[in-house]
Design a protein around this nucleic acid. Sequence first.
DNA 1: CTTGATGCAAAGGATTTGCACAAAT
DNA 2: ATTTGTGCAAATCCTTTGCATCAAG
Lengths: 158, 158
Amino acid sequence: MKDEFILIQKLLDKHNCKLTSQKKIILKALIESNTHQSIIEIYDRIKIYNKVGLATVYRTLKIFTQLGITKEISINGVSYYELKIYSKKPLHIHFKCIHCNSIIDIDDSNINLEFIKINNYIEKTKNIDINDMNIILVGLCSKCREDKKCQDQSSIEE
Amino acid sequence: MKDEFILIQKLLDKHNCKLTSQKKIILKALIESNTHQSIIEIYDRIKIYNKVGLATVYRTLKIFTQLGITKEISINGVSYYELKIYSKKPLHIHFKCIHCNSIIDIDDSNINLEFIKINNYIEKTKNIDINDMNIILVGLCSKCREDKKCQDQSSIEE
DNA sequence: CTTGATGCAAAGGATTTGCACAAAT
DNA sequence: ATTTGTGCAAATCCTTTGCATCAAG
């Protein structure tokens, strides 16, 4: 754990930010979870054992995102955050099921490779710099897809 | 214009929705603009000549999006809408400049083709149905990129 | 003792909702 | 008449901000 904080410490230092106990608590929550979390989820999780204000969670994750420590994804007007540094899945896309509303990570090195290629192509042809890529697929997850199949089946049988 | 409303009329009928004068006004605003617009932008645009409430714009675009008439994209907690049916660029991605905050459409048939391939691959390997794809790239647009270059240049010269 | 960080409560902006009324079959 | 849509204002949800206080060099 200590090791992981060194780079973050440096990043914060560079921007005159202090690695306070609250920031450590929030970082811990990010490290412990291996997926995106909303502010409220993070807040509810840490407030049980620690005294941290909601506003601090908002402020901290905003700073973390500016420094590239976390990544922010916005779905239906709500922001979710996940660790970017040290992540086992640094580039991954999200899938939102229209039926059960769950948000699933899709992490596949073949896909990631394709996206990197596309990004390079866009950067060259459009003369822009791309720092980040947010992809959200929307559709039916495998579970709801099965459920729906069964449902359709039974309505035919009626 | 009339022709374009027939399919929409049918879609609305199927869901027991009426194609009211307000819905026509909003549709017109969507057709006239060839890019994404926020609710407020649409509202401000139409309220000059027509009496339409803000809530109606919200309600209408929610229905339109459910029926697949419009597409919703959410950036920084704000929803933007664009016509999906009859669109000249049915599949396109958005780019947000971190410097000037402008949101630019990127429409390129090569890119679109690649995305379709990736979608097919994901559908097969992950056993899901994909209805929609939201892609937002974040970075520096060509203009700000140039501005920054000049700035860096001058700071070197100092 | 100065600078930045925090917690709280209040304010803000985007969106939704309750309700009485209007429109259209 | 019945159903659906509308405008308005109030309510709601997520997020930001002002301010007094706290923590640390």
